[in-house]
Amino acid sequence: MWSAFANPERFERLAARLVPWFGWGAVILFAIGLPWALIISPPDYQQGDTVRIMYVHVPSAWLSMAAYAGLGGASFVYFIWRHNVADLAAQALAPIGAVFAFLTLATGSLWGRPMWGTWWEWDARLTSMLVLFLLYLGYMALRAAIEDERLAARAGAILAMAGLINLPIIKFSVDWWNTLHQPASVIRLDGPTIHASQLWPLLVMALAFTALMTALVFMNVRNMSLARRAEARARRKIEGGEG
């Protein structure tokens, strides 16, 4: 069933149909989530209003890791089956994931200043998040450095799969090392330890971010697929065939 979407044109049609759904979904969710998280939800009894940074920070962190998981998965599919769409997806995910990783680091840093008294702390989770950001940069730099499109795709896929090792390190860094960063409080076996008045806006924001990222990724895939086809057509024209 999945191989049906390996056809770029079919995938493109699907993407074109899905983009408005996710895009408008994101708009609606942000319209609910932003005021709820940034204005209505109560300030934290310890952190005061700075807790509101969390509503951007946590979804960004989740998505930067989810995007990397997607990048690794798409790379695996491309590496084994050579589906072009998988490569396009990987290429589309990388810059978006990198932006979310950067957002995570930036908002964490802004929050850390009043709360921990420092912009940056070399603690395990911050460091492994920075490593994730560097992995994204390395992936994009490698792809940009190799001119041959197919070679770049293969090399990138191998690197992306190797970088997957970092994901569990980020996830469990707060449990393995005694860190300044607080342990998980939402996804736990014994249920969330975060209060419902903060959990709900957080979940809405997380959904909004997810919808936004999905829309952006589909748009990016479509753009690249169109660009590739335009380039192929231009090349055919230059080489003398009919366009």
Binding site: V131, L134, L137, G138, A141, L142, A145, L159, A162, G163
Partner: peptide, 21 residues
């Protein structure tokens, strides 16, 4: 991964360093 790329040294550092952390 970077074999045959121009200015491979920079790329190698960017790829290897995160994995060597």
């Amino acid at each position: 991964l970077a074999a045959g790329v121009k200015r491979a040294g920079l790329l190698i550092a960017l790829i290897a360093a995160p994995l060597q952390v």
